[in-house]
């Protein structure tokens, strides 16, 4: 995957060596895994929130940044995921981790017919369409006054048998797995044959189709994958919050946060959403004193970024120091080359 040396390609972009990348990865994973032993429950709760936002932003970036499907309706799958977890755990009595997987499956299953409608739309119409789908799902849940208790919402009770510490530890563990899992997933996907095709489709859909790429099928695959992932994260969010209402779960604010994080950090990279999520988190804590104004300030920051640095903070770093942590380009050394990779591609 990662070059065995600090590869300096003719394009001149530096990358981490295997040792550096492994060390960095081990440091991050070690810190996250050992945190329950040295960090308090407050830190753990904060990290759960951070990791969920990070996962959501990575998935939105895969959808919009890498695939060009600008959805403003990802809250649909957060809501479906949250409700699916409660139904799976409370109504069906299934274990929580299985409930999370089923939440993703439920979101993907509903995303399939939604895609049937949405994929007939282009550009801005597609975006608006995704929001309409989210609203329809919100209204359907609202009208299920008996089963899902309509606008009153439901409370996850399956975890009440656990002690608070066990529940928080479980939530934290799942958040770490999901947060890191999503980054690994996006990285591996973008380095795969499918990732190459995705980039080509984003650059020129017609040219990609003329070279034998099944553009619609690949886009559908990513759309469903992101619905699945967002559904799982939605379940995690409500495992943490315990209480769900349709208005909160299907709120467009979720997608607004995803967009903010990706725009600020840098669209079309894996590092961007990581930086964006950290920044968003810090900004939100800092701005929380301003009440309603905090949202206006966040919006203003995003607008300023889009005008003056559309490539985001990671874009600036990448250009200034010509450096990347998660390279998705296949840059085989010009002379010797990575024979294994080259074979895999031929």
């Amino acid at each position: 995957m990662i070059k065995a040396r600090v590869a300096e390609s003719p394009a001149g972009w530096k990358q981490l060596s295997v040792i550096q990348f492994t060390a960095l990865g081990a440091l991050v994973i070690g810190a996250l895994v050992s945190l329950p032993f040295w960090g308090g429950p407050g830190v753990m709760r904060m990290l759960v929130e951070f990791l969920t936002l990070l996962a959501l932003a990575q998935l939105w970036n895969l959808l919009a940044g890498y695939t060009g499907l600008v959805s403003i309706g990802q809250q649909a799958w957060i809501g479906i995921g949250g409700y699916a977890l409660i139904v799976a755990a409370d109504d069906l009595g299934l274990p929580i981790p299985l409930g999370l997987v089923l939440a993703g499956v439920a979101a993907a299953l509903l995303a399939l017919p939604a895609a049937g409608l949405l994929f007939r739309l282009r550009g801005g119409y597609f975006s608006v369409g995704t929001w309409v789908v989210a609203e329809i799902l919100r209204l359907l849940v609202m009208n299920s006054t008996d089963w899902l208790r309509g606008g009153l919402g439901r409370t996850l009770t399956a975890t009440s048998a656990m002690t608070r510490e066990t529940r928080e530890l479980l939530t934290y563990a799942l958040a770490v797995v999901i947060g890191l899992g999503v980054i690994a997933l996006v990285h591996l996907l973008m380095r795969s044959r499918t990732g190459l095709a995705l980039t080509a489709i984003r650059d020129s859909e017609t040219a990609a189709a003329n070279l034998g790429i099944e553009t619609q099928r690949i886009k559908l695959f990513v759309y469903l994958l992101c619905a699945f992932g967002t559904g799982v994260v939605g379940a995690l969010i409500y495992l943490n919050l315990l209480r769900i209402t349709p208005d909160a779960a299907f709120s467009v604010q979720w997608t607004a946060f995803m967009i903010f994080i990706v725009i600020i950090g840098g669209i079309g990279s894996i590092e961007g959403p990581i930086i964006g999520a950290i920044l968003f988190f810090v900004l939100r804590q800092f701005l929380s004193d301003f009440g309603e104004w905090s949202l206006i300030l966040l919006g203003a920051i995003a607008v300023v970024m889009m005008i003056f640095a559309p490539e985001g903070i990671w874009g600036i770093i990448r250009r200034r120091w010509q450096f990347e942590i998660f390279p998705v380009h296949r840059r085989v050394g010009a002379s010797s080359g990575d024979a294994h990779e080259r074979n895999a591609w031929q």
Partner: peptide
Amino acid sequence: FPSLSVRE
């Protein structure tokens, strides 16, 4: 494809 290298 502008985002891709010659090889890609």
